[in-house]
Design a protein around this nucleic acid. Structure first.
Lengths: 340, 340
DNA sequence: CGAAAAAGCCAAAGCGCTTTGGAAGACTCT
DNA sequence: AGAGTCTTCCAAAGCGCTTTGGCTTTTTCG
C-alpha cells in the first residue's frame, strides 16, 4: 500500500493525502480525518526510502564507532546505549553505528554527512580540542557531545557530568578524614573527563595546602588488571598513599585485589573511593568492603542525549547550550580515618 | 556532483555511466575506464538514498535492540559489537540498532523488513523455538543467528559455540579430580546456551554414574551479585558442592567473594571453572586465584557473523548452514582435587 | 452585489538512482 | 551484398514520496 493507491482509493490527489498525513494546514479538517482513517485502516506507512530521498530526513541518529583489532569498545558504551535506546524507541528513532578506523574517523563522519545518512550524531569520550567536534561543527549536522571538549572558538551543545566537582568532593572527604597522601588512578588522561577529575582532586588538596605527587597519579585504560598494577606500584613504593580515588568500578576490582594481595585492608590501611557509572552487573555496595562512590548513571545520560538529539532534529532545541549534571557522593564502608 | 552532471560532463547517458560504475558488461572497456576516472577525479559518490529507493539495497545490517526501563543490555554485547564493527568497516557496512519494547519485538522486526531498512539482520541470545527466528524466517530477510534455537520445522543459518561440549569437558575434568558434588551457576535457562551448558554438565556426571542435584543448579541473570548469592546458598546448605561451574566471569567475581566471605578457599575447599567470553577489561588469569575457564572469544564471533551477513547479502552464501565452534578449556589455579 | 481574499484541492515536477526496451552501428556469415 | 548477430549506447520509465505553482470554489467585506 503506497501513497498513490491510497490517494486513488480516496479519490484524492497524492498531494492532498500527503499533506493531510503530515499535518499541513491547507487541507479541510474533515478530509484530513477521512485520510487519517483510511491510512490507519489499511496500515499505510510511508516508505522511508522514498521520504528520505524527497526530504533528506532519515529518522536516524548516528554514531561513529571506532574499531580496529586493538581497539576495545568501552563497556560503559552498552549502558549508555540502554538509555539512548530506551528513549529513541519511544520516538521511532533508530541508531546507526558506522564503524570507522579508529585512526581515521574523519572520513566516516564526512561520508555519513555527505550521504545524509543520519539526521544528527553524538560524540562520546571527547578530548580537549577534539577534532571530531570541530569537524562535525563545520559539517553543520546537528550534534550533541556526551562529555566535554575544550579550547574551541565556538560553543556547542553537550551533556556532561561534573567530574571535577565529584572528585573534588571525594578528595575533600578523604582530606577531612585526615588523609594527607592521596592517589588518583585515572582513566586515559587525554580525555577531558580524566583531566577534570584530576583537577578536582588537585583543587581539594591545594585548598588544604597539600598537593598530588606526580608519582601518585596514573592514567591507564580502565581494566581490572591496570587497577591492580597501579595499586601495587603505589603501595609498594615508599611514601605510599593512604587513600585512593579511582575512576572506575572495574579498576576498583583490581585495587581491592591488590590491597588484599599485599596483606593490607580497606579501609584500615587504605581508603578507597571510585566513580560508579551504575552498571546493573557490578554494584559498589556488593564489594567485599562496600565501596564509597561518586555516582552518576550513564544510562540516564544516554536517554538525555537521545532526547536532546530528537529535540534538535525537530528544531525544538537550538543554540549551544551545555549542561552539567551534579554527581552524588555516596559514602560506604571503604573510607575511614587515615591510619596512624 | 550527481549522476546527471557526471553523465553530461562525459557526454554520455546516465544509463551508461551507471552501468560503467556498477560493472555491467554492456559497456566498452575504454568507456568504462573514462567513466571510472572521471568519477574518481570528481569524487562522485552515488547518493545512497536514491540508490536504495531504486534498488532496495541499503548497505546496512540490522539488530533489534530490546529496551525498557528494567531491561539491561548484556555487557557481552559490546564485545560482540567490536568484532562485528571491525569486519563491517572493511565492507562499508553500517549497523542499525532499532530499539524495541523488549516485550514486543515483532512489531519492530516487521517494520524494518517492510520498510526495507536493512539488507539483513542478526539475532542474538536465542531461546528454543525463538519467535524472532521463526518470524524473521517467514519475513524472508537474510539473517544469521548468533547462538542456536531449536525445535523448528525449518533449518536456518547460525554461528554458535559448543556450549555443551565446553561444559562437558569442564565437568569431566572436575570429576576426574575426584569431585562428586558439582554445582552449576548458570545464566538464564530460558536461553539455549544455558540449556546446552547444563546438558553438558549432566552428561559428564551421568557418564560417571553421578548426577546434578536440583539444588545444585541455578539460573540467574549474570551479575556479580547473583554469583555471590548463589554461591552463599550453595555452600551454606548441607551437602555443599566441592566444585562449581559458572557461566560467566562476572558472576565468578561474586563466587570468589562469597567463598572468601565464608572463610573458604579456592581451590582448597571449592574448585571453580567459569566460562570466559574474553573481555579486555576482565581476565581470568588476573583473579586472585587464576581462574580455569572455558574460553571462546565473543569478539571473533561478532566478526564471523558480520562476515556471513555480508556474504548472504551479496549472494555468496546460501542455505541454512549452521556452524559450531569448539571451545578451549584453559586450566589454571582454581581447580584442584576434591577435598577430603 | 461584486471584487478581493482565503480555503481546498490538484497536476506535475522534482529527489538521484537503476533498469527496461530499444536503436544504431559494427561485425559475422553465406 | 543482404540477413542475422553482437556490441555499445540511449531515452524514458520507474522507485514512492514531498513540494511548487496554479486552479476552483467558497468566504469575506465594503
Amino acid at each position: 500500500m503506497n501513497l498513490k493507491q491510497l490517494a486513488h482509493m480516496l479519490a484524492l490527489s497524492q498531494t492532498t493525502v500527503s499533506r493531510a498525513l503530515n499535518g499541513y494546514p491547507e487541507v479541510n479538517e474533515e478530509t484530513r480525518r477521512r485520510v487519517m482513517d483510511a491510512a490507519k485502516r489499511h496500515g499505510y506507512r510511508p516508505n522511508p526510502s522514498a521520504r528520505r530521498l524527497a526530504t533528506g530526513k532519515t529518522g536516524m541518529i548516528g554514531y561513529v564507532l571506532p574499531t580496529g583489532a586493538s581497539v576495545d569498545i568501552d563497556p560503559h558504551f552498552v549502558e549508555f546505549l540502554s538509555g539512548l535506546g530506551d528513549y529513541a524507541r519511544s520516538h521511532e528513532l533508530d541508531l546507526v553505528l558506522s564503524p570507522a578506523d579508529a585512526d581515521d574517523q574523519e572520513t566516516t563522519y564526512r561520508r555519513i554527512v555527505a550521504n545524509r545518512q543520519v539526521d544528527a550524531v553524538y560524540i562520546s569520550s571527547p578530548r580537549p580540542a577534539d577534532r571530531r567536534v570541530a569537524l562535525v561543527n563545520t559539517l553543520g549536522i546537528p550534534f550533541i557531545v556526551h562529555g566535554r571538549s575544550e579550547g574551541f572558538d565556538f560553543d556547542y551543545a553537550f551533556t556532561d557530568i561534573d567530574n571535577e566537582g565529584a572528585f573534588h568532593e571525594a578528595a575533600r572527604l578523604l582530606i577531612q578524614l585526615g588523609h594527607r597522601r592521596l592517589a588518583l588512578i585515572n582513566g586515559d588522561d587525554r580525555e577531558t573527563f580524566a583531566i577534570h577529575r584530576e583537577r578536582g582532586v588537585r583543587r581539594a588538596l591545594a585548598a588544604s595546602g597539600l598537593s598530588l605527587s606526580e608519582r601518585h597519579v596514573c592514567s591507564v585504560d580502565m581494566t581490572e588488571e591496570n587497577g591492580y598494577r597501579a595499586t601495587r606500584r603505589l603501595l609498594e613504593e615508599g611514601d605510599a598513599p593512604t587513600a585512593i580515588a579511582c575512576s572506575s568500578l572495574i579498576m576498583a576490582l583490581g585495587v581491592v585485589r591488590a590491597v588484599r594481595d599485599l596483606g593490607l585492608s580497606i579501609p584500615g590501611d587504605v581508603s578507597l573511593i571510585a566513580h560508579d557509572d551504575v552498571f546493573p552487573w557490578l554494584r559498589p555496595e556488593n564489594f567485599s568492603v562496600p565501596l564509597s562512590t561518586t555516582r552518576s548513571s550513564i544510562r540516564l545520560a544516554g536517554a538525555r542525549v537521545a532526547e536532546r538529539l530528537a529535540a534538535r532534529i525537530s528544531g525544538l532545541e537550538e543554540g549551544a547550550r551545555g549542561e552539567v549534571w551534579p554527581v552524588d557522593l555516596v559514602v560506604r564502608g571503604s573510607v575511614a580515618g587515615a591510619p596512624g
